[in-house]
Design a protein around this nucleic acid. Structure first.
Lengths: 209, 209
DNA sequence: CGTGTATGTTACCGATCGGTAACGTGCGCA
DNA sequence: TGCGCACGTTACCGATCGGTAACATACACG
């Protein structure tokens, strides 16, 4: 269960957010990420999230109107972080759209190589939450459309024909890699193949077909 | 909820399995497939499965010792069906391993094109059930290893270099396609790209790299 | 100093979860 | 005819789910 009741002698002299003690809302989102990603959204109760965040259910519900909203906000946070990684890497690859895509994929690949990785949190949520009305679905679909757009624009800038189709294939490739981690495991193949595969698609060896 | 209480005037003159009335165990597995696949395993209770099967919880537990076992057996059934499709299609493509793979992928693609499709049931289960001890995980991992083996053997028979890597890429591709359905939707791209993408991998246009 | 506001604590709610006990009921088969 | 077995029905169990009410505490700020 891993409760951690009241964190002994909190030692907070400053108002908020100073030592390593984040405000409750941030701690809750942090705990939500950790638990939802590791054990699945449906497999984790709000009580466990609050306890892991070092707080309780009541404070959680003062910041998030429902579990579904908490889930949506957790996903939004992940999406924002991924967007940021695009921009961060893009700044180092101005006027090199092909390099931009490859560097971003490589970065993702590195994150996925870690043994505790379970692929893309947003993709996993998409599978776990099929209900169309769930507030998280909006975030999921918007994020994936954004990914597709970024792939496509970079492909177009790189002068590739069929930019749209290549973007779709890159999406499939990435999601497939994340999923394969959870079926055939981290050791055998999939991650290693990712970058090389993407290079094919981006026509490093010439644009064929 | 969709209960269907006792099915009015069952009209069963024969002992078992004659009209369209399957024995309870089969009906339960059928209902489990329908509900688990459509709404997610964790999102469906045993009561709903029993009701959809036209029976009740007690009978369900006479045939399956726990929900987890029911889940595992549901997955086993799916895996067996997929194995059968390999063999069925393989019979029509003896001595043509490349055609065997492509025909099988095309068949899968056709199934996934249906609007109610949510990709591979086994892949979805892998994401929904991260707990290592779950009886379903054994089925999942064994099945995925089997898929990988089938891809690899056919690649090898086709004389392709790097058969192992291509097998991994085909796996990623297929899982990625199923997942993309649930994120960017059925209409835009991914399914259309699958077969063409696989043809690349299988070196229809020459073995490059 | 006093006050408001954010947080912690406890107890509780109804609903649903997975799973079981006890008892009918109806049909196949000898 | 009568027995046994599979199935149906009802009621229940303890645990956990998401969510809330009421009250205590502590700290920032006027």
């Amino acid at each position: 269960m891993a409760t951690r009741k009241t964190l002994a002698t909190p030692k907070k002299t400053a108002p908020v957010l100073e030592p390593a003690e984040l405000p409750p809302r941030a701690r809750i989102l942090q705990a939500a990420h950790e638990l939802f990603y590791g054990q699945g959204i449906r497999g984790v109760g709000v009580e466990a999230v609050a306890a892991t965040a070092g707080t309780n259910k009541m404070t959680l519900y003062r910041h998030f109107t429902s579990k579904d909203v908490l889930v949506a906000e957790y996903l939004r946070e992940v999406a924002t972080a991924i967007e940021a990684s695009w921009d961060r890497i893009g700044a180092k690859h101005a006027d090199d759209p092909r390099g931009h895509i490859l560097a971003w994929l490589k970065d993702m690949g590195r994150q996925m190589e870690r043994p505790e990785s379970r692929g893309c949190p947003i993709t996993n949520a998409a599978i776990e939450l099929p209900e169309p009305g769930h507030p998280g679905r909006q975030v999921i679909e918007e994020h994936k459309r954004g990914m597709r757009r970024r792939f496509m624009e970079n492909c177009r800038k790189a002068g590739l024909p069929r930019a749209e189709m290549i973007a779709d294939q890159l999406l499939m490739l990435l999601d497939g890699a994340g999923v394969s981690l959870q079926t055939i495991g981290h050791e055998s193949g999939p991650m290693r193949a990712l970058a090389r595969h993407a290079e094919w698609l981006l026509g490093v060896d010439g644009d064929k077909k």
